[in-house]
Nucleic acid binder design. Sequence first.
DNA 1: CTGCATCCCCGATGATACTG
DNA 2: CAGTATCATCGGGGATGCAG
Lengths: 130, 130
Amino acid sequence: MEKSQKKYRIGVEVTLDVIGGKWKSIILYHLVGGTKRFNELKRLTPNISHKMLAQQLKELEHDGVVLRHDYVEVPPKVEYELSEYGQELIGVLDFFCYWGEAHLDRVYGDKRLMLEGEFLDDQEAQKEAD
Amino acid sequence: MEKSQKKYRIGVEVTLDVIGGKWKSIILYHLVGGTKRFNELKRLTPNISHKMLAQQLKELEHDGVVLRHDYVEVPPKVEYELSEYGQELIGVLDFFCYWGEAHLDRVYGDKRLMLEGEFLDDQEAQKEAD
DNA sequence: CTGCATCCCCGATGATACTG
DNA sequence: CAGTATCATCGGGGATGCAG
């Protein structure tokens, strides 16, 4: 089924297709902070594969929420930013961030958020524990 | 990895775990309209399997955004509703609905939303087209 | 540096059947 | 009516390699 042919029953479904999934909201959230290059986004989003980042950005661009600027030069330089239209989502992304932190507080009593360095180490630790 | 042990880097990830995925936001959206019984939700969410609905509701309950009321009787009667805490999400769900419809307008020029009857038929038509 | 194709695996999901 | 368990499948997504 072509995505352009896909039908929906309620708007909620549509929005989920655009900003849902494992990575899109995280990518968009980083773009709220301003224009970013491909590898910059990759660094900001630990554990995302090169393939997935490229794929998700392509979909976000296709959906018009992200703009892609290709400085045609060697080595390649490409920048991504929120489109004017995509900026309508900033409010939601901020709310997600705020609500998510509050949720951890309510459920676990701590924020359970990690610094960059901790996180990478933690990934290893969790593999050990398997 | 136990979910209770999972670590996050930004609140956005947390919120996605709670209301993201293929079904949760849709289920929550229906609950905005008021308390619903299990089969009622199943009817409101075409194509969801019995198993998935049960599973997603269980997770939503565990995360504290949905309350489960079991009228201990035969035949069983169980109702679900948004918790006070879950009601903080109503604003976002409404925005999703609004933004999603607007998105279809902007991208395709029509709403591409279907009535209940149409939708079921359409599912068949799309299978044919494969 | 960025993008695309290929291979492959695992986990999410659906179908089905059974219980209270 | 609501919930659980089992099994089979399908596709998302990771790893890798190559191209511009």
